[in-house]
Nucleic acid binder design. Sequence first.
DNA 1: CACTTGACCTGTCCGC
DNA 2: TGCGGACAGGTCAAGT
Length: 287
Amino acid sequence: MPELPEVENIRLQLEKFLVGHKVESIKVNNPKVISGDYKKLVGAKVKKVRRFGKAIVVDFDNKMSFIGHVKMTGQFIYRGKNLKSPTDNPKFGDLPGKHTHVIFNLDHDSKLYFNDYRRFGWIKVEKTSDVEKESFVKKLGPEPFVVNSSGQAQLTLELFKQILSKTRRNIKTVLMDQSVIAGVGNIYANDALWSAKINPTREANSLSDLEIDELYYSIENVLTKGLESGGASELAFVRPDGTNGSYQDIALVYGKEGERCNRDDGGVIEKFKLGGRGTYKCSICQK
DNA sequence: CACTTGACCTGTCCGC
DNA sequence: TGCGGACAGGTCAAGT
């Protein structure tokens, strides 16, 4: 669900829709999902929207920011003038809904809603200068490729090799570890491993140089496809205008249990648990 | 220190 | 039909 491509899609739309808007008031329906002195955002204008791994950062013109994480089921929904979807998407006509926890009332009759039916997501308000000191942000490893708006270090092939050589954890768990690579989650980890024909259970330090090369470019490739298709709309993911992404339609192994392998090699996609997560692999090409 | 597991939540689906 | 339980998966705290 919301992994780097989904969160980057959220960022792109929020940047387009929010920059220049002033916060007139903030309504908090569920105090548990928002922390920090959010009243300090009232009267401030949105200046910039950044992304750190799977977190969104909205910077205001008064040196305040909020950092938000949608986890699996959170949504940032923007409604423009007269509360219309900025792209005339008819979904989410009944906002605010049962799971709307925070509403930012903006100028020109527009609003930003934060919804999350599982309430795992969160928003934290703090000084802009404190965002990068935040423990969540500090723990993030390099970005897998340059799409970040924050100047964060990029994961090079050399660095990737170094990291993998140092651990015997299974390669899939390593890919999903945010301190190793920021932004890869379950869907893209599964698909990148299938692309590179690597069994998810392999110990990271057992991969050959050639396999690491394959994997490195596979990660870049699946994330790019995810970005371009608007993300994977599994569970509750929608972009801020309410539209779905379509990566789920082109997913390579994720969610394909029992189906024939895309390579048509006679393999069948099997599902099992690895590190507590649903994991998919082809019985033939990912030995 | 390296790594794994459980808790946090609620909606959906499956089997009995 | 209704009900219990497994499952979904990002992150952190607690456990091995």
